[in-house]
Amino acid sequence: MLILQILIDGFAISALYALGALGFTLIFGVSGVLNLAHGAVLVTSAMVAWYVGTNEAAGALAGAASGIVAGVITSFVTYAVVVRPIQRSKAIPEVERELFVLTGTLLWGVMLQIGLGYIFTTTPVTVHQLVSGTVNILGVRTPTNEILIAVISWLTLGLLWLLVNRTPAGKRLLAASINPRGLTLMGVELDQVHLLAWGIYGVIAGIAGVLLGSFLGTSSAYIPALTGTAFSIVVLGGLGSVTGTVIAAYVVGYIETLTAYLISPSLRAVPALILLVLVLYFRPQGILGRR
C-alpha cells in the first residue's frame, strides 16, 4: 500500500520535474544558452494562466491557453531583448560571451521576479485545474489532475522526441546542437534555428508552468527555487541531454518522495542535493552528459 502510494505520487511529481527541466536543457543543447530566467518564464505562464482562468473567470482551458501564449511571448522577449544583443555585441569578447548571457538572463529573471511580485503580490496562487476529483488506483486515492499532469508531461516529451527525430526542422535543431558551424556551411540560417528553438522552448515552458501552477501553486517567490531545481536536474542528467534530463528528473522525484514518506517531510530536498554534490565530484558530465 505504502509502496504503491510512493510509486504513484513519485511518478507524477517526477514527470512534472522532467517537463519543467526539459526546456532548460533544450535551449542549452541547441544554442548553448544557460537560461537563468527559466523559473521566471515558468512562473509568468502560470501567473497569466491564473489571472485569466481564475481572476477573470475565463475558465481552466482559456487560462491554460493564455498561460502557454505568455510562455512563448516571454521566451521570445528573453531571446530578443537579452540573449541576442549579447550574442551579437562586438564589445564583448567571444570567450566571455557565455558568461555575459548567463549574467544577462540571471538579471532578467530577477527583473521579472520583482515585476511579477509587484503586480500579483508574492502570495502564492493556484492555476485552475483542468479536471477535479479523485480516482481510486488499487486503494490509493489519487487526484485526477495528478494523472492528467503525468499524461500531458509524457505527451509533451513524446511530441518533442518526434519533432526532433522525425521532422526536417527538428533535425536542424539536433544538428545545431551537435555542430552549428557545419549547419551554417550547409546553408541553413542559424538565426532561424535559434528562433525555432526559443519558440519550442516557450511552448514547453508554458505547459510546464501551467501544470506546475495547478499542482504546486505559483508565486514570484518560487522563481529562484524553480530555476535551481531545473538546473540541478539538468546537471545531474548531463547538460543538453534530453534523455538524461528525464532520467535525472525521475531519480530526484523518487528520492524526494521516498525521503518524505520514509524519513521526514522536512528533509525532503536533502538527499537529492547530496546526490548532486556526489555527481559533481565523481561524474561531472552527469548521467548522460556529452561534455
Binding site: D9, L216, P265, S266, R268
Partner: peptide
C-alpha cells in the same frame, strides 16, 4: 506533530501520514 519544510512542494506524504 508533523513539521515540514516551508519549501515543500508535494504535501501528499504529509496528509497520508
Amino acid at each position: 506533530e508533523i513539521r515540514f519544510s516551508p519549501d515543500t512542494a508535494d504535501f501528499t506524504p504529509i496528509f497520508q501520514q
